[in-house]
């Protein structure tokens, strides 16, 4: 490793070049001829909600938008009536998908839902064997939020059993409560701030549909590297 001094000096050299360069002010975009804006605490992006795609105000509208958007993205949304119905829905998925082994993490919903499946479980808490998880038919996780605007699932390394569980097995099943639905991306980021700041999980991820690629003739193929199937089981 380079010694501390050279590392520091490279940092100082770059920062010195940046400061030298910034001595000449540049015009604000779209405002030629006016004085540059001072650094401000208010971000122009803070008003994003008024420009981003519209989301209805009522819960029913938001839920309908989430369902239609997720379906368009080829994610499967199953709305069930109760907590107990989650168990039944998961058992049906397991038998339909002929699951032999599943992976999950410790959590109130995941523990409850997977308790009676009767399948070998690869658990992530405290670390896991990647080969073993790779051999699982499904990864079952909780989440932080569902985003109506984009049909996304917000997961973090704390809420969803780490980084690998939601991408390594071929089928990702998310168990969520209706109350976890938020309207849009600004609301989702606000939730992350409120829930975690300043001790953020090391990974925060918006999952928007199952893994996909269009790198061959721009034709959509699901399951490029991550899950081929994404199911959101919501009660």
């Amino acid at each position: 490793m380079k010694n501390e001094e050279t590392v520091l000096s490279e940092r100082e050299k770059i920062l010195a070049r940046v400061r030298e360069a910034l001595k000449i002010p540049a015009h604000v975009p779209g405002a030629h001829g006016t004085a540059p804006l001072p650094a401000s605490a208010h971000s122009p992006a803070a008003d994003a909600r008024s420009w981003l795609p519209k989301v209805g105000d009522s819960f029913a509208e938001q839920l309908a938008l989430f369902q239609s958007t997720a379906a368009e993205l080829k994610a499967e949304v199953q709305m069930v009536a109760s907590r107990d119905a989650v168990k039944a829905a998961l058992a049906k998925m397991a038998s339909d998908g002929n699951w032999k082994r599943i992976a999950t993490h410790k959590g109130e919903l995941t523990d409850f839902a997977t308790a009676d499946l009767g399948l070998p479980i690869c658990r992530t808490e405290g670390g896991y064997d990647v080969q073993e998880m790779e051999a699982c038919d499904a990864g079952i996780t909780e989440c932080d939020a569902l985003v109506a605007q984009t049909g996304s699932v917000l997961v973090t390394s704390l809420s969803a059993g780490g980084r690998g569980l939601s991408v390594l097995p071929p089928h990702h099943v998310v168990i969520a409560r209706r109350e976890q639905l938020v309207a849009d991306l600004p609301a989702a980021f606000a939730l992350v701030q409120k829930k975690y700041a300043p001790h953020f999980p090391s990974m925060i991820s918006f999952i928007t549909g199952p893994s996909r690629t269009g790198d061959i003739e721009r034709i959509l193929v699901l399951g490029a590297h991550g899950p081929k199937k994404l199911t959101i089981l919501c009660f």
Binding site: T150, S152, S202, M203, I204, S205, F206, I207, T208, G209
Partner: peptide
């Protein structure tokens, strides 16, 4: 509308 995975990384494990 949104790319499939948008992920923020804030550190090692």
């Amino acid at each position: 509308a949104l790319t499939c995975y948008n992920t923020m990384y804030g550190g090692p494990r």
